[in-house]
Design a protein around this nucleic acid. Structure first.
Lengths: 209, 209
DNA sequence: ACGCACCCTGTCCTTGTGGACAATAGCGGA
DNA sequence: TCCGCTATTGTCCACAAGGACAGGGTGCGT
């Protein structure tokens, strides 16, 4: 059993809470959205919440103040008893790190938690397939490799390593060349792309402004 | 160490193969795409492949006959030494079950394998975020509040300026404070966000992983 | 009054980075 | 063959960046 980190379970469905208690050794159960505040303040991150049950009139969970306050700092797995793609998209948009069926096998839930605990996002196969189909139907997006065109093959490699935050010695080590050579390539890259330093390069490579 | 199932490693990069050997107790390494045939016939499912290295001219891996024959029956994790969104989309469309950085931490790769081994799909945070953004262009700040939450107001300002490539004197000038103060704020920012330098900070702020 | 968090500034010091000079070697086109 | 592009490596140097010590000032809650 992994997930040593404590988990907050947010639902007022007793049966669900009982099921989810098997997720990890340390599980706290709450019924009110405000529990997110204390959870965040206590330095915890992991949350599993039932989107259907903390009933808050007709509003959705992620319009609640407590959600908005803490969604950024927490890793929330949103579960729905009747998952649908739009709800999933909305949940992720609102800062949830994962979306799944609330009655999914406990092992699946645990895996989803492990994934979001490590900083990734978790999206079920169905929703992800739909996402892929959606972007596939309308993707005119090209020119992402715009920055790479004027560069030589070797310069591209060095530029990429630099753009993801590696140091010159690190790049040299990764490519099996000298740090001096890395500098030479980077100098050429800076010149060709008209940037001043590796940070500007990173922004260019990752398509920031 | 989980993943009791044997894994096929497909790459002609010796260093990468060496790294990936730590993925599971049972790891078979191959250099040719045709290895997928025997792997599938032997009743195995898990494959990790380097998109860059089994060099097949200018063609991509998934236009190979061996890929097309087996992609449906295998669970393939495609890794790229220079991941880019278009390549990832293409790989998933071609039947890969996951797409990630070939030099990602071994634990991340293992987790990805566990996910696709259980029948799900794996997509890294960066690509997934972009997918979500593509589907709903106004994905506001699912990542902004993330890095900003632990910071104070002033630290946020400094972090933002640093993340768009401004130098310390530049930031100091922009905020009307001393360069020394900028450094102090940045030191706190680095500490709180657990990053080593301003480039890592920029990547975090702009949602790049 | 005291602690605490935040904001501000100071002086060293080490290291990484980028530029300014180089040089050598391979490879392909004119 | 010569020229140009590419890849590689060298040394020296100026500067930015980040850490390691310092502090001082304000406001706020107990």
């Amino acid at each position: 059993m992994r997930i040593p980190e404590p988990i907050l379970i947010l639902t007022d469905d007793d049966l669900l809470a009982e099921r989810w208690k098997a997720l990890a050794p340390a599980v706290i159960r709450a019924r009110e959205v405000e529990a997110l505040d204390t959870w965040h303040k206590a330095g915890h991150r992991l949350v599993v919440t039932d989107l259907s049950r903390p009933r808050i009139g007709s509003k959705t969970l992620w319009t609640e103040a407590a959600w908005l306050r803490n969604a950024g700092g927490l890793a929330i797995l949103a579960a729905s008893s009747r998952p649908d793609d739009d709800e999933g998209l909305a949940a992720l948009k609102a800062g949830a790190c994962g979306y799944c069926h609330s009655h999914a096998p406990i092992d699946t839930l645990r895996q989803a938690l492990e994934v979001i605990e490590s900083g990734e996002l978790w999206v079920g196969r169905a929703l992800l397939s739909r996402l892929l189909r959606l972007v596939d139907t309308r993707l005119p997006r090209a020119g992402l490799a715009d920055w790479a065109t004027p560069l030589t093959e070797r310069e591209r490699e060095v530029a990429h390593h630099a753009a993801i935050g590696e140091s010159n010695p690190g790049i040299a080590d990764a490519l099996g060349i000298t740090e001096r050579t890395v500098k030479a390539h980077l100098k050429a890259v800076f010149e060709k792309l008209q940037v001043a330093d590796r940070l500007q390069l990173a922004l260019r490579v990752h398509g920031v402004r």
